[in-house]
Simulated assay, not measured.
Amino acid sequence: MRSDVLIVARPGRSPHTESTGAIAVRRTGPETVHLVSAAATPLGGDALRLRVVVEDGARLQVRTVAATVVLPGAATTESHACWTVEVAGTLDLDPEPTIVAGRARHTVHTALSLTADASVRVRERVQIGRSGERAGYWSGALRADVDGAALLRHRIEVGAGSVADDAIAAPRAYEAELHYPASDVDSAGVTLALAGGGCLTTWQGDRL
């Protein structure tokens, strides 16, 4: 199944939303929307495409009502999600964690296009395996540009078959936050200041 979501925040207006497929969008506040699963997704074979636009002077918070559980499909174990984010105002994107069930393989691509005056916090949390599971694979690629200039190119994979996988011990949980333009933030992980402004914090462990 393919799911498409569009969210546009304009100053002085409620966010405009459109959605098709297995994801619905609900306006839960003047500047807040929640993503809701209208059907089980992502399953193997599913493709999710989400576009978020925050215009100059607008503010937007994006949340999810529950964790996302990635499951293998009958024909394939692989699913994909693509976020396209354009920000000239203020965006706080903080979904609940993604849980990758055993045998499932999920790939996420996130592309952010920011203006120099934008303010952004993007948080991502991943757990490989449900209770008692160690299998599952997740890969995430994050690209961020400011006024067309490269700010960040980041890619990581965790879980069974990943580069860091090990039969004895290997991370099964991952958390990251991208902040712009803030570069001094409290974090339980490692914070890397970016040359173009802002910072990336990352953490890995066994359980979120």
Rank of each mutant, 00 (worst) to 15 (best):
P11T: 05
L50W: 03
V87H: 02
A169K: 11
W203E: 07
V100T: 10
R153P: 09
W138E: 11
S37A: 15
G159I: 07
A182N: 13
S113Y: 09
V108F: 09
I99G: 02
A135N: 15
S131K: 15
A24N: 08
R155P: 08
G73D: 02
A118V: 07
G45Y: 04
A39D: 06
G44L: 04
L60R: 00
S79Y: 05
R207M: 08
A47R: 14
R125G: 14
L91D: 01
L91C: 06
L200K: 03
R63L: 13
Q204I: 10
A111C: 12
R26D: 06
V185G: 02
A135Y: 11
L112W: 08
A167K: 12
A40K: 06
G29Q: 02
V146G: 04
L151W: 05
V25A: 01
R121K: 13
V146R: 03
I23P: 03
T20K: 05
I168T: 12
T77Y: 10
R59N: 11
A66I: 04
V158L: 11
R10W: 06
Y174M: 12
T115V: 07
C199V: 06
D92F: 06
V87L: 00
P181K: 00
A67Q: 09
V5Y: 01
H106S: 04
A176E: 12
R26M: 05
L93F: 11
E55R: 00
H16Q: 14
A141P: 09
T110E: 12
L93T: 05
V163D: 14
S139Q: 15
V62Y: 00
D92A: 13
R49W: 10
A9F: 00
T98S: 07
V85P: 01
G140F: 04
V69R: 15
L60S: 02
R207Y: 08
E124C: 06
H16T: 14
A67E: 10
L194V: 09
E18L: 10
R2E: 15
A75K: 12
H179E: 08
A144G: 07
V185W: 05
A22Y: 06
V5F: 03
V69F: 12
G161H: 05
A40V: 15
V33W: 00
E133F: 07
A101V: 09
H34V: 13
T41M: 15
T107K: 11
L192F: 11
D165K: 08
R10A: 09
R105Q: 14
R13C: 11
Q61L: 12
A75S: 13
W138N: 13
A170S: 13
A150I: 10
G57R: 01
G196Q: 14
A104K: 08
G136R: 04
